[in-house]
């Protein structure tokens, strides 16, 4: 009797010890990053003034602001969305609603996995070989955003497919039984009930593409452009590349400048992610069936 409780107590202690070990590992993973983020806020925060955001760089990027880079990132991300969202949604609809279980479907799935896993610098090489040289777009916003779009395609496909498949199969069967075609079923019942999930994926894509550097650095983003782009065949600056440039390539940049750019990038990316997480939580709480 006593022996038993003793053993229980020892067990409890061992239990707690293991629990704490694993908690410690989790915190060790999370805490350094939080400390680093804190540091970025402390050093980069004061840099992020309205002038910094909306002025052109001056004196060889050692003074002034980052407006062309800021705007360039927005343009690249938006155009990337324009290319990848329709294509990604179509691919997801095909995979979820039409695709039979055959070798071709398996190849498509494998291609998506690989598209997501190919190193970003390889995407950059593809962008150079295909868009810049073969299609003759030159190093341009067009070539860079196409490269970004292909790189981000798996994000849209996977998120969209997941939210389409979350719509119960019984709804489809009920529509089909009434004589609706597959497309009528998709348009009237499946898509309206997955549009918020798709939006979550799109926001995630924004956060992914906003910080990408390698895929755009040889396809359309430039170290320094003294004017704003006029057409999609112009080059542009971008925040991510700007951070790389002013922290490694240009002497004499005020020490806190790159902290400000890094912080701005993190703010963009994290707020997009937080938005998509919040959206998802809201969705989960809203019962439609």
């Amino acid at each position: 009797m006593f022996a038993a409780t003793d053993r229980n107590r020892t067990n409890d202690r061992i239990q707690r010890r293991y629990r704490n070990v694993f908690l410690g590992m989790t915190l060790l993973l999370v805490l350094p990053v939080l400390i680093i983020l804190g540091l970025l806020v402390v050093r980069g925060g004061p840099v992020l003034t309205a002038e910094f955001l909306f002025e052109f760089p001056k004196s060889g990027m050692t003074a002034g602001g980052i407006f062309p880079a800021f705007l360039g990132t927005i343009i690249l991300v938006t155009m990337g969305l324009v290319f990848s969202v329709p294509l990604g949604i179509a691919a997801a609809i095909y995979l979820s609603e039409y695709a039979p279980d055959n070798w071709l479907t398996r190849s498509i799935n494998l291609a998506i996995i690989n598209l997501a896993g190919v190193p970003s610098i390889v995407h950059a090489l593809f962008g150079v070989g295909a868009f810049v040289i073969f299609f003759g777009f030159g190093t341009s916003i067009l070539a860079a955003s196409l490269t970004l779009a292909i790189m981000a395609l798996p994000v849209v496909i996977v998120a969209t497919r997941e939210s389409l498949q979350a719509v119960p199969h019984a709804f489809r069967e009920a529509c089909w039984a009434m004589g609706a075609t597959r497309w009528q079923t998709i348009r009237r019942v499946v898509l309206p009930n997955s549009v918020s999930g798709i939006l979550t994926g799109v926001i995630l894509e924004v956060s992914r593409t906003a910080g990408e550097t390698a895929p755009i650095m040889f396809t359309g983003a430039a170290f320094f452009v003294p004017f704003l782009p006029q057409t999609i065949f112009d080059k542009t600056m971008a925040l991510s590349l700007h951070l790389f440039v002013i922290s490694t390539q240009v002497p004499g940049v005020p020490e806190d400048f790159p902290y400000g750019v890094a912080l701005l990038l993190i703010i963009i990316v994290l707020s997009m992610n937080a938005l998509s997480i919040g959206f998802r939580t809201w969705l989960r709480g809203r019962k439609k069936w």
């Binding site: 019984a170 709804f171 069967e173 009920a174 089909w176 039984a177 009434m178 004589g179 009930n193 069936w289």
Partner: peptide, 19 residues
């Protein structure tokens, strides 16, 4: 599809569409 429009179906489990 035109064939199915002639035939009404009621399922074992109720299916109210999310409309």
């Amino acid at each position: 599809y035109a064939l199915r429009r002639q035939i009404g179906v009621v399922f074992p489990l109720p299916v109210g569409l999310p409309l």
